[in-house]
Design a protein around this nucleic acid. Structure first.
Length: 495
RNA sequence: GCCCCCAUCGUCUAGUGGCCCAGGACGAAGCCCUCUCAAGGCUUAAACUGGAGUUCGAAUCUCCAUGGGGGCACCA
């Protein structure tokens, strides 16, 4: 049973090879939640041992992503901590030493096989419908010969020497014991010929040195999980608790979500990349709540802030089965959390979207429109179509839309004139002063509120759909509202 | 092909042998509210993959089948 009173040390260990995506964010989130829940530490480690796939901007994007999401780090690159450095390329000596230690103890061996030969062997095995695996050539090399060839300048890697017989039992918190026959585990390379380790060695060494207590990682590691356990046992170290998270499936429910599959994932108004989601107007609260619940279920009250998730989080309640991404649900959570934001906060969040769209934002106006549009926003950038007109000098209504439903241009013009008459007679246009006389007009004219208000709406806001009419007119102001009404009358009369 | 894992409404999930003719959420449908669009309230439809066991009793345990997923690199 998981002890939530014992501070855990957990890590999020991405490789800087591309954009931060939903899967990574969820792994980070679960690690964060568990760290906070136990009063432990949330650590970031950059796994940059593959120089071929290295993307320089990726590390910053990860940092930005975590920061934006609000997953605060306790240790990591740029943050510091007692177990650094937190970038694997800065720890190569540790890996080299540990690889040598395994060789000395007989748990690993140098391998001089060329990639070309290995490729041929693999081809041959596949042709014979055999399981592709290392054929063991250098396993039998004596230490003297190995030393001689190495001294000769021959390139070599170090492979883990997996026992030929027996089986290995590895324990996953969510799945229980996983038993695998050792003959099904390959002699994996743990140190590459460039002197850098592969994941298998690097992660195990670091997790041990960094005193990681719980390894919460993606399912892609499940197949090499027994290998990792063997490595740890070879060193004689204590094992962390292992948790392999399910993968995200594509919205169609088929296949794994892939960050390479951008055309599929990033189309439309959604994306699997955190930085895209930010630009699309999604807020951290919404995203976090959404991904938290893909792989973790709560009985009820599923709308949660980060802090509430921390309170409720239970590691062993995570789900072992894969989850299909459902962007509709993201929209729901995003809208829900937007509605939970206090006025000034929401104002601050939508402001950049107005600015980005080219509007000059007046803060006093901004704070007034927030209550009007809050429950209409699914994403922050929805504020543009809903409330852009508040910051426009002139609006240009579509003439056809000025004509009320069931009426013609002439009739609509008459209504607009009457509306102008009513409004211009008022000292100022607050929603309290404008609504009663307009309602009275609707009443005695026999028209519907829809028809009369519709004309006013299109005239003053320039659009058929808008925030509540009289509140909007109030914010637009008397002068500008009447000006716009007048222009609408002219348009209608010219039809 | 081989190894490993998973399996409750369309989707995310609750459920750890009786509380389940299976609960919540998204989505869908309907109604209410209503100046548009939303939000909100109420209601409805919708699932234990199949087959064998174990048991007085199974969504819950076991086995098999089927389906789905992950992996099979000097990538992580």
């Amino acid at each position: 049973m998981t002890d939530y009173n014992k501070p855990a040390r957990v890590r999020f260990a991405p490789s800087p090879t591309g954009h931060m995506h939903l899967g990574g964010a969820r792994t980070a989130l679960y690690n964060y939640l568990f760290a906070r829940r136990t009063g432990g530490k949330f650590i970031l480690r950059i796994e940059d041992t593959d120089q071929k796939r290295y993307v320089p901007e990726a590390e910053q994007e990860i940092l930005d992503g975590l920061n934006w999401l609000g997953l605060e780090l306790d240790e990591g690159p740029g943050v510091g901590g007692d177990y650094g450095p937190y970038r694997q390329t800065e720890r190569r000596e540790a890996y080299r030493e540990h690889a040598q230690l395994l060789v000395d103890k007989g748990y690993a061996f140098p391998c001089f096989c060329t990639p070309e030969r290995l490729a041929r062997v693999r081809e041959e095995q596949q042709r014979k419908k055999e399981n592709p695996h290392y054929d063991g050539t250098c396993r039998k090399l004596g230490p003297d010969e190995a030393a001689r060839r190495a001294a000769n300048g021959e390139k070599y890697v170090i492979r883990f020497k997996v026992p030929k017989d027996g089986s290995t039992t590895a324990h996953d918190l969510l799945r229980g014991d996983i038993v695998i026959e050792n003959r099904n585990v390959d002699d994996y390379v743990i140190l590459k010929s460039d002197g850098l380790p592969t994941y298998h060695l690097a992660a195990m060494v670091d997790d041990h040195l960094m005193q990681i207590t719980h390894v919460i990682r993606g399912l892609e590691w499940q197949s090499t999980f027994p290998l990792h356990v063997m490595i740890i046992r070879a060193f004689g170290w204590e094992e962390p608790v292992w948790v392999h998270l399910s993968v995200f499936r594509k919205p169609e429910g088929k296949g794994k979500m892939s960050k390479r599959d951008t055309s599929e994932a990033a189309k439309g108004d959604h994306s699997i990349f955190i930085k895209d989601l930010k630009e699309l107007g999604y807020i951290p609260e919404g995203i976090l709540n959404w991904i938290a619940l893909m792989g973790w279920g709560v009985p009820e009250d599923d709308v949660m802030t980060l802090d509430q998730m921390v309170e409720r989080f239970e590691l062993d309640k995570l789900t072992a089965s894969p989850a299909a991404i459902n962007f509709q649900k993201l929209d729901h959570f995003n809208g829900t959390h937007i509605r939970l934001l206090p006025d000034p906060e929401l104002a601050a969040r939508i402001k950049p979207f107005f600015v980005e769209a080219g509007y000059s934002v007046k803060d006093d106006v901004l704070i007034k429109i927030v209550p009007l549009i809050r429950e209409r926003l699914v994403t922050l950038d929805d504020c543009i179509p809903f409330a852009g007109f508040f910051f426009k000098d002139v609006v240009e209504p579509n003439p056809d839309e000025l004509i009320a439903k069931g009426l013609d241009a002439k009739r609509s013009a008459a209504i607009a004139r009457k509306t102008y008459e009513i409004l211009s007679a008022l000292p100022d246009l607050t929603h309290q002063t404008t609504e009663p006389p307009m309602r009275a007009y609707v009443e005695q004219s026999g028209l519907s509120a829809n028809q009369v208000f519709g004309i006013l709406r299109v005239a003053t806001t320039g659009q058929k759909v808008s925030p509540p009419l009289f509140e909007s007119v109030e914010i637009i102001g008397k002068e500008k509202s009447l000006e716009r009404l007048k222009k609408a009358i002219e348009i209608l009369e010219g039809m």
